[in-house]
Design a protein around this nucleic acid. Sequence first.
DNA 1: CTGAAAGCGCTTACAG
DNA 2: CTGAAAGCGCTTACAG
Lengths: 356, 356
Amino acid sequence: MSVTGHTSSDSAATPPQGQQKAASIRDVAQAAGVSYQTVSRVINAHPNVKEETRKRVEAAIQSLGFRRNATAFALASGVTRSVTVLTSNTVLYGYAATLQGLEEASRAAGYTLGVRVVTPEDDLDRTIASAADTGGGLIVIGFDRLGAAALDRVPAHVPCAALVEAPPPGRTPDRPAVWADDREAARAATAHLLSLGHETVHYVAIPASAGTRQAVAPRAEGWRQALRAAGVTPPRPSGKGWDAQAGYEAGKKLAANPDVTAILCGNDDLALGVLRALHHAGRRVPQDVSVIGFDDAPHSGFVTPSLTTVRLDFNGLGWAAFGLLRSQLDSGQQAPTSVPAEPTLVLRESSGPRAV
Amino acid sequence: MSVTGHTSSDSAATPPQGQQKAASIRDVAQAAGVSYQTVSRVINAHPNVKEETRKRVEAAIQSLGFRRNATAFALASGVTRSVTVLTSNTVLYGYAATLQGLEEASRAAGYTLGVRVVTPEDDLDRTIASAADTGGGLIVIGFDRLGAAALDRVPAHVPCAALVEAPPPGRTPDRPAVWADDREAARAATAHLLSLGHETVHYVAIPASAGTRQAVAPRAEGWRQALRAAGVTPPRPSGKGWDAQAGYEAGKKLAANPDVTAILCGNDDLALGVLRALHHAGRRVPQDVSVIGFDDAPHSGFVTPSLTTVRLDFNGLGWAAFGLLRSQLDSGQQAPTSVPAEPTLVLRESSGPRAV
DNA sequence: CTGAAAGCGCTTACAG
DNA sequence: CTGAAAGCGCTTACAG
């Protein structure tokens, strides 16, 4: 491992250009023999500029390597083509994929994208305030409790769009938000396991995004609904985290119970941990136990057994959230945008009929 | 899946505050009965302010909910506490983990972090220019060809730090950069496999970051060195991508060759694909074939067989790169910073002695 | 210790 | 079609 600091070539002789400080609108004006006002018109593509002077100005811009100062533009015009996303995580697959969609959408729209991770130690109000006055608007990923808490504290006057877990039926979030219908997806996945002959389905949960004041987590809720619809009393869910280690620990207990034949997991990492625990306990998947994950992380189709899981379009969710924010920014209004694709149950090797 | 747009509460009655536009330095000055100049002194913690007036100003700041306008500050002071990172990817583990380190470091330093993904369709010079004049400096992730190409085109006068693959011994990059010694790590991993009795080691490569003009990729180079040192002629490397699918395809061919008993992979995703291909071919790991990955992605310890791999401290690399940039920004100079930890070979189930 | 001036680099009306 | 003025919200010297 190594770090190096190389003394950069100090000054002089940069072929195309080599000034000390960037050319301003006035430098261009002088070079073109016009007022800086006219330069402003040219760079803003104003209609009323004589063709010839436009050309002169453009030539000057070219030769001076002029680029409009983004800070000055923002201050003078009040237009900030930038958004900043607030999230508690950037590495977990669902978050990273959402971030990717957000970045693509903002890039496509010519916006700058800032990222600010919120931690449990943060003073939420301070964090939000500084993120808010950095850019033109906020996008908050409210998949987990911290993100959801941050969202709750965003002042009403700050343009903001959120990504959240599916709200309870009939309820809409207080703020513009997008979500995948993971409640229904969990219901379908559970129903699928029941249809395979399993008498019940156990659930290894991801941490809840809301406190007690709100309804239950949608994935857990969908799972419960499916069981109840089949006349089955839901067993107690387990799970104490987001990662494979948490899945492993929950899986160890489930593996020890011979009655357990089907397990739904709140995400694919959890499922991998459960698979591992079952393996260690000598229980075969899917012959002895079926496992279904959530999210369809890129490697989930390549582990052995490959993982049956619910595919969620995080990327599309990111695009949609950006669209929601942008329409606020542009119109001052709030309008729905395109709807991301429905979740899909991807059947692979880790689930199968109950052994008789 | 659903999207909703909720009309926000228009105005009025926000308990703590409820103005239309943010309070400025002048509003505060007026409320405190001082000049806006003095307000500036207070918010910048200037020493020469009478205790009593300071208190008056602070009270006014509090009651008006004043926050200094970041844009105006940047324009007037010339100080931009922000960096933007240029990368071709944000989701692959190595990139996501690096980004995480970068975000942590910039947050700790009170900097704003922008992310700009570069694509093959981008005009690199334009992309770099716009990223550069957005923030105070650039950090480019040059792990792959696109990132490395972007780095090459960053103008000399732009403050910039890079994360790169290990440069050839004795050579230092043109710009301030950090790297992990993956050449040595690949050498060690290969030597380990040879010491286990394998007659040779095959390599499934990640795509090269440099064109032909530069020396070979460090991981491939380390692998070759180890083989040559043992008197073994390196076989032809395979691999045509970064993901598990690419690993699967390369693995399919290797699996068909009974002479293959040890495989080093350029990353863990590739290794997962190779594992899968071996499984499909009925070759057991590690009894028939040993597999070693690279990066130690979070789930690599939970797949079965768990993956022997090289752990790289991407997070530390991110911190170091930020430090490198910051020292340029602060001092105008370039200085080395803390050195990330050395790579570690993490032994797990996927590697073992050659079966005799 | 505190105020009046000039300026950061641009834009938005206002004149001509 | 083009220029002179005022201003975005702050800071940096300069006076007192």
